[in-house]
Design a protein around this nucleic acid. Sequence first.
DNA 1: CTTGTTTTATGATTTAAGTCATAAAACGCA
DNA 2: TGCGTTTTATGACTTAAATCATAAAACAAG
Lengths: 162, 162
Amino acid sequence: MSGEIKINNYNDDGREFIQGIFYKDQSFGEPPLFLNQKYPASAVAVEEALVLCLPKSDFMKLLDENPAVSIRIIENLAQRLYYKSVMAAEMSTQEPEHRVLKLIDHGIAYFNFKKDENGYLINFTRQQIGDLTGLRVETVIRTIKTLEKKGVLKIINRKVYR
Amino acid sequence: MSGEIKINNYNDDGREFIQGIFYKDQSFGEPPLFLNQKYPASAVAVEEALVLCLPKSDFMKLLDENPAVSIRIIENLAQRLYYKSVMAAEMSTQEPEHRVLKLIDHGIAYFNFKKDENGYLINFTRQQIGDLTGLRVETVIRTIKTLEKKGVLKIINRKVYR
DNA sequence: CTTGTTTTATGATTTAAGTCATAAAACGCA
DNA sequence: TGCGTTTTATGACTTAAATCATAAAACAAG
């Protein structure tokens, strides 16, 4: 309903990977419900957030009685699968510059980045970009500097614009 | 309807990434339909295959008139999203041994690996494992050897069993 | 059976990203 | 207003996986 939630994992040595970030009017956590699986990740509030929790039975009832909702859910899952497919290919084969840029451009299209006179403000910390792309902070910082030098994005007092 | 299909991408320098592999009774390629997006990947027959192509309009009609099909589609997308989430976390933070093992164990659960007296036969080439995990063939070969030495899987005349 | 291709295999070398160390700037808050 | 924390930043060094080279075994096709 409001705020910002990240879905994440930690690997064996405590390194974080962010599966996705969700904002107002978005939903998360459905897939395991349909599979009777355990949640493969955690949900963490990045800022104060209000989240509506729907019991599985109510959710299933909603779907049963309301085909239009099913379609919306399908569209939503399709969107998330699309993002994951694109990022998986990026993360496994492309170099840092490509990965960071892809994430940023995806963010412009699907996260709530605001546009002002400098362009779109990329509302992620370097650490978050790293955790979303599988890179380390230092690498992200250096990569963003390189991208700025190449003129594909701007850094205006430490904030990234595209 | 039969055969084996891989969904893949090639990066800028021709390196392949396999998004997924599909067999009899499975479906693929739906997400972009719901998003009116271009296909972000290609489909390639790995062996002789027979594929049923359903026009978008027919498919949508099927969903509209048949809520039970919607639920099946949701379950299917949820399954694929689940796989991608798990593999994304693996690929970005875990080391080769972990990645390869995770893929193999997922394959046992969801691809059509057959069990015989030696255990489950992992019906992938080293190259395919590499393209699915973002590793190079040589790394996969060495990793599998290490895993064999550790006793977590068997290599019987070049075939991998788990 | 022969021949060309794919798959598995192994050793040597390179390199890009990770790691480690350190610090300044910015932010949050009591 | 001062103090602890987070974020951005940079340089030096290390390392794990990629790359390169080479080859044997297995397989496929004629």
